[in-house]
Design a protein around this nucleic acid. Sequence first.
DNA 1: TTCGAACTTGACGTTTACGTAAACGTCAAG
DNA 2: CTTGACGTTTACGTAAACGTCAAGTTCGAA
Lengths: 138, 138
Amino acid sequence: MPSSFTISDLAREYDVTSRTLRFWESEGLLSPRREGPHRLYHQRDRTRVKLILRGQRLGFTLAEIREIVGLYDAAEGEAGQLSYLLRRIAERRRELLAKRADIDASLADLAGVAENCERRLAELQVKAEGSLQEEVLS
Amino acid sequence: MPSSFTISDLAREYDVTSRTLRFWESEGLLSPRREGPHRLYHQRDRTRVKLILRGQRLGFTLAEIREIVGLYDAAEGEAGQLSYLLRRIAERRRELLAKRADIDASLADLAGVAENCERRLAELQVKAEGSLQEEVLS
DNA sequence: TTCGAACTTGACGTTTACGTAAACGTCAAG
DNA sequence: CTTGACGTTTACGTAAACGTCAAGTTCGAA
């Protein structure tokens, strides 16, 4: 496992375009080192990319994601900073729990619809067998 | 509880604009009755609005949400339709479970960061008391 | 040293999900 | 009968998150 990566290494690995990585950097979500004009990515950047992608899957905007990844490496600092951080973390936690509740509600709804479907499917099955019987008897 | 609602009734209730409700209709997500040129919304439409909002909170696009709400009232139909429906429902279920896994991972990460914060905060606390002691003794 | 692959920075285009403004219809109240 | 609150359609504007050129730079291999 190499310790540094080019932009297209990272792009390939996470299935995003180089353009996307540069855009995320311009939005303050990444800050790779430079080797002359070229970007050099390290483990820290890979971790961030994973966090960004996960945030996107959860429907957060890039601005929100920037805030979230900020939480991860702002864990140094003095007392005031730290307790502020803890409050923001508690907020994010509440958001995530709310989202999970939405998901559970959706899953329950879909399960209900599926149950309906299967019941109707079973009914149709019975009917089909009935008409088959009639054909045999006639 | 009235049985029909105007566009601004619904907009107020769910804290969206009338423009939004018209837009969702133009995208095929709602289909209120008409009283002349005016829209008349009923319980069915309210249910859909709730589903749309929940879908948005979960980061689905309007196109995906249209597909999802379609599942709810497509539960009539014949055998082929029904088993197709069941497959789509299974897909959505997998998506939702994946999202919930992302959420759980995020919650675990944040819990880790929070733990770090509290540990460092406790350390700072001890230091502060130490220097207070020194001041008293000097 | 020169070629091509990969990198760079603009700059403009695109899609999604509406906001906003214009111009008009409707209807109950004063 | 007009005013104001609400509704309508049509059309253009906008922010987010990139895609897509364009035009130039860098660098390892031939």
